[in-house]
Write a protein that binds this DNA or RNA. Sequence first.
DNA 1: TTTAGCACTCTTATTCATAGACTGCTAATA
DNA 2: TATTAGCAGTCTATGAATAAGAGTGCTAAA
Lengths: 360, 360
Amino acid sequence: MTKNAKNKTIKSMDVRKRQILSAIVDHYIKTGQAVSSQTILETYGPQVSSATIRNDMKFLEKYGFISKSWSSSGRTPTTQGYRFFVDWINELSELGRKDEYAIMESYEFQRQRLEDLLKRTAFLLSSLTGYVAFVLSPKLESTELESITLLKLDGENVLMVIVSNLGIIDTRVIRSSYSAEELEEVSALLNRSLRGRRLDQIRDEAVKQMNEIERETWGYPVAQEAFALLHQLIDQQMQRHLYVEGILNLLKIVFTWDEGLSQARHLMALLEDEERFTQAIEVIPTKPGGVSVAIGEENFLDDLHPYSLVSMGYGFGGALGILGPVRMDYSKVFSTANYIGNRLQTILTVGQRATAMTQN
Amino acid sequence: MTKNAKNKTIKSMDVRKRQILSAIVDHYIKTGQAVSSQTILETYGPQVSSATIRNDMKFLEKYGFISKSWSSSGRTPTTQGYRFFVDWINELSELGRKDEYAIMESYEFQRQRLEDLLKRTAFLLSSLTGYVAFVLSPKLESTELESITLLKLDGENVLMVIVSNLGIIDTRVIRSSYSAEELEEVSALLNRSLRGRRLDQIRDEAVKQMNEIERETWGYPVAQEAFALLHQLIDQQMQRHLYVEGILNLLKIVFTWDEGLSQARHLMALLEDEERFTQAIEVIPTKPGGVSVAIGEENFLDDLHPYSLVSMGYGFGGALGILGPVRMDYSKVFSTANYIGNRLQTILTVGQRATAMTQN
DNA sequence: TTTAGCACTCTTATTCATAGACTGCTAATA
DNA sequence: TATTAGCAGTCTATGAATAAGAGTGCTAAA
């Protein structure tokens, strides 16, 4: 039974069968209980008898959309059944006013540290959906360094502020007792050689630049220290980071299951292994500019088979989304992820445009 | 039975009874199983017979140190039993090299944002102990503003850097297009009126200062904006914040229990209610400079009765500690909390001293 | 004061029986 | 041909009954 065959089956299914499948998925998502023909009759309307529904259910089972755990139990959707349902709801439902307001409010400050921005986004996503949210940081290879500034804090400490293309700001403290004037000069020197360079260039040409900088900033060891720190920081930022929030929601998800304990352990281990989890996210086939999902066993990692992973790219190679139970509220999650993803993309793009303007 | 009577009982208890009590608590903490006389015999040594142990256990039960869930079950420690055990181990065990190294490494940077410092501390505490960690931010009323600096980022954005007494740094972005020179001048003006002032003064005398600043910084609306933002920031910082980490560990704790689900829900709600949780922490009677603990029903809040709350003040009105099951590894937790608490205090105090020096 | 020995208590696991929820099939019906 | 009523058959869930086992409390002796 190839994928095409399955699709044909769906297309050729009459309306009632689709409605029944939809009703089963919907009801199972809401209640978590296997769905009986009787239940469908009550929920979905008494146009036909329960016997007819049973016949259709048998058909749906034959073609792999639903299954039962024993000979006379109600039916639960299979992965294929969810897939049908999910592809069905392409019209995104509107977000509530309240949610929209919360999102607006959360993004109030524009030029924050990238880290804070992404963390906040993950938190938002999680609290609005009630599931576990993740945000995968963008790939920073192609972004440009906009400025690096050294600022005297007090007799012993200097603050280094780094601004990149995407509106990223990060700060580090260096111990140094140079005067404000000297620091200003050093900042100017550093900026002259580094401004507008791509981060991956800066990373790759470290040695060459180091020489150059050493030549130009003779007598200012602080410049070299700043340069070294900048490199360290770039290395850190170019590593992709994963921000996960709402782990408490995991409790709700997993607690009602039979194998809750071992499930939770697996998932805990996975969530702590950024690399594997990142892989699982990146492997999801992405619809350009839209929300994608890997349902249950569609997931790359075995540990994720009991869950669904909703993901959306927000540009610059970054992605955000939701980890939830297979029976999650896809409609709500899709629209929320979509809205927040677009919002985040806008914020990052605007940062970029503003930069472009100042560089003219 | 007053507290004195109880203490008398403990003092008058012969050595063996204490050892048996200690063995029961220790074994129960390790295994989670009710402890039988036979088990004690095996674990603790065969100097006496199990019947003798049973007699002693009866005594210990009579005076409220242990209890059994049914007539012929093994014994579990009562709150009073834990209390005995905990007061018993006042010598803190040494921290492992590995842990000490992790702590050193984590505190590498000295002048970080207070928020980051506290978050990192909570994370550290949680990962070293395997329980839920909290850090309650210090009371900032009496700290002094050290400097406020405005820094041009690009054509549209200005970074405001605020440094306080405790080595606190926080940053905010203001939209403004003033030149670097103008900003420098504004910074100087702001510093002249605000440096060395206590944060609560600044907060309370807002109106008066605003007038003063308006007079002096005529023509620089950015100064007023910075001032307003400073106030907003001070208000935010002076609110006590609670940083909680390691919630995943809650899973391990709660999963093995019978009423796990409802327990977890309660606790989730509590952890999200900073105010109540803060109250529960502050109400713990503190040993000056040491670690204190509220065991089980000793906790102020009913929701915390199934847990123990270990807390240590790190000065400046701040506290940090661990939320864990009543049967937690107190020895390990005490020494870890103690070590980290002292470390944090040192960091904050050094920040303060450095400040004092620059002010001379 | 300690100990051996035994009766007694309560838990936990297992088995068994019963009620109930659904399906699948057959035969009748539109 | 599609639908439906009715009923037999399947499996779960629940509770009762039972047996095995872990552990104490007590008594009488050392």
